[in-house]
């Protein structure tokens, strides 16, 4: 087991090199560069800038170098923990990301736990009461949840909250706390604002997870070991939780790894729509303005989370399932 984890960890740097190259190629791919986009913005506001100035900047930022040289410079700095400078903000990318990462994590984790806390009990109920009224209602809710795009849901909820309850649910803080230092009041304010975006982010995942749980558990409930447990004289709910639920859970554990990066990247559109101060809008803006090192840095973090998440779920699965733990 330890050997297996070490092997997987040894593979991580290699994967990161491959990912970083692919990311660099992609953020380089759009025609032009940051300066072209910058000049276009200036031109649209009526100002202009001399060609010499542009060329000087291009040389300063190394944008005139061939792609492979630019990539090499980027990676060289990354290895030293330097994410480079944002071309647009003229500040270190690490600082820009660092400012947002706390809230992004808080929102993602909150949404993750909300998803599991709702989906698992709902799935268990549906599977143990198949074709009951409750199961049918949950099925309809789940299909609607899976089928509704989350930015659409965000817009609808915002409109309902604003039109009928006179509430503004955009952002994560009330105006009076927005720039205030951290305090208990600000924390409570954050919690009051957090649940709605968390729900919007988690709703499709909740619906999908609860369907998977239902299907897995229905399969497990027909297995002979359930009959054995019943024949022992166990209480039904204890039996269901101890045996089939435990087994139905295993396939889900292997999906935990995908959820973390999914929640980060999935929040991009919703966060922009709901004006949430997390990494989503930052990435979108960086991509639009071709602020390539900022975009690259963020994408690299996503990739890293994907790899770590997968490793994490593999380790978790081995911990809970003796067939994998003892077998390997």
């Amino acid at each position: 087991m330890t050997r297996y984890i070490l092997q997987r960890l040894a593979l991580l740097p290699l994967l990161m090199v491959i990912y970083s190259f692919v990311i660099f190629v992609i953020i380089q791919a759009p025609p032009g560069d940051f300066l072209t986009a910058y000049v276009a913005t200036l031109a649209s506001s009526g100002s202009s800038i001399s060609q010499e100035q542009i060329e000087a900047w291009r040389a300063q930022y190394g944008l005139d170098q061939p792609m492979i040289v630019q990539y090499w410079l980027w990676v060289k700095h990354l290895v030293h923990g330097n994410f480079g400078l944002s071309l647009e903000y003229q500040r270190p990318n690490a600082d820009l990301i660092g400012e947002q990462i706390g809230l992004t994590l808080a929102l993602a984790l909150f949404s993750f736990f909300l998803t599991w806390a709702i989906a698992i009990p709902a799935g268990i109920y549906s599977a143990t009461h198949p074709r009951s009224i409750g199961d049918h209602i949950l099925t309809v809710v789940n299909y609607v949840g899976v089928a509704t795009p989350n930015f659409m849901l965000a817009l609808i909820l915002m409109w309902v909250a604003f039109a009928y309850f006179d509430l503004s649910v955009t952002g994560l803080y009330s105006p009076e706390y927005a720039d205030a230092p951290w305090s208990w009041g600000k924390f409570l304010d954050l919690m009051a604002h957090l649940w709605l975006p968390a729900l919007v982010l988690g709703i499709a995942g909740t619906a999908r997870l609860s369907r998977i749980m239902r299907a897995n558990l229905l399969d497990e409930l027909n297995k002979p070991y359930v009959v054995t447990a019943r024949a022992k004289g166990m209480k039904e709910w204890r039996l269901v939780l101890r045996y089939p639920v435990r087994l139905a859970f295993n396939p889900l554990i292997s999906t935990i790894g995908w959820y973390l990066p999914m929640l980060f990247s999935g929040s991009l559109i919703v966060a922009t729509v709901m004006n949430l101060p997390n990494i989503g809008p930052l990435l979108l803006r960086a991509l639009v303005n071709q602020d390539m090192y900022l975009a690259g840095g963020i994408l690299l973090i996503y990739s890293f989370l994907t790899i770590v998440g997968t490793l994490l779920s593999d380790i978790l699965l081995a911990l809970v399932d003796p067939r994998i733990r003892v077998g390997s």
Binding site: A229, A231, G233, M234, Y243, L247, D321
Partner: peptide
């Protein structure tokens, strides 16, 4: 009462010993 009898007074030896035990316990 039924659960008391089941396993306590009437026990079952099932058909497939392979699947009759939970594989993770």
């Amino acid at each position: 009462e039924m659960r008391d009898i089941r396993g306590g007074e009437i026990a079952l030896i099932p058909q497939e010993p392979m699947a009759a035990f939970s594989p993770v316990h």
